[in-house]
Amino acid sequence: FEIPDDVPLPAGWEMAKTSSGQRYFLNHIDQTTTWQDPRKAMLSQM
């Protein structure tokens, strides 16, 4: 499912887009990137 862009990312995360428009996520805390939206895990725990 798609999460609306107005749902905030967890602390330390940033959303970016590739030149082709694909979204990816940067974790500044552990210096990693992922295609997986970290908000999905956050919302599934609620």
Rank of each mutant, 00 (worst) to 15 (best):
V7T: 10
L43F: 10
E2K: 15
Q45L: 08
P4D: 15
I3F: 15
S44F: 06
T33S: 04
D5Q: 13
D5I: 08
K40V: 12
T33D: 01
A41T: 14
N27W: 00
W35A: 03
P10C: 00
S44M: 08
W13I: 02
W13T: 03
A16N: 09
T18M: 06
Q22R: 07
F1W: 00
D30M: 10
W13A: 04
A16L: 08
P8Y: 02
S20E: 14
W35M: 08
D37A: 01
A11P: 15
Q31G: 08
G21Y: 03
S19W: 05
S19H: 07
M42G: 13
E2W: 08
L26I: 15
S19F: 10
I3Y: 12
R23S: 11
L26V: 11
A11S: 12
F25D: 03
V7M: 14
T32P: 00
F1R: 00
P4M: 14
P8I: 02
M46T: 15
F1K: 03
D37M: 01
S44N: 08
Q22D: 12
S19R: 13
T32E: 08
D30P: 01
Q36T: 09
F25H: 00
I3R: 01
Q36G: 05
V7W: 11
D5S: 13
E2P: 14
F25N: 01
E14A: 11
D37E: 00
V7Q: 10
Y24W: 01
A11Q: 14
P10V: 00
L43C: 12
A11E: 14
M15A: 12
T34M: 02
K40A: 08
W35N: 08
D37F: 02
D30L: 15
I29D: 12
K17N: 12
L43M: 14
A11W: 04
S44D: 08
S19I: 13
I29F: 05
I29R: 12
T32V: 12
S20N: 14
D30R: 09
R23H: 08
S44Y: 03
E2N: 15
A41L: 10
R39Y: 02
P10R: 02
K17I: 13
R23Y: 01
D30S: 11
G12H: 04
R39N: 01
D5P: 08
Q45S: 13
P8E: 05
W35F: 15
E14Y: 03
P4E: 15
G21W: 00
M42Q: 08
R23T: 14
M42C: 13
F25K: 00
E2M: 06
F25C: 02
N27I: 00
D6R: 09
I3T: 06
T18P: 02
V7H: 08
K17Y: 14
A41M: 15
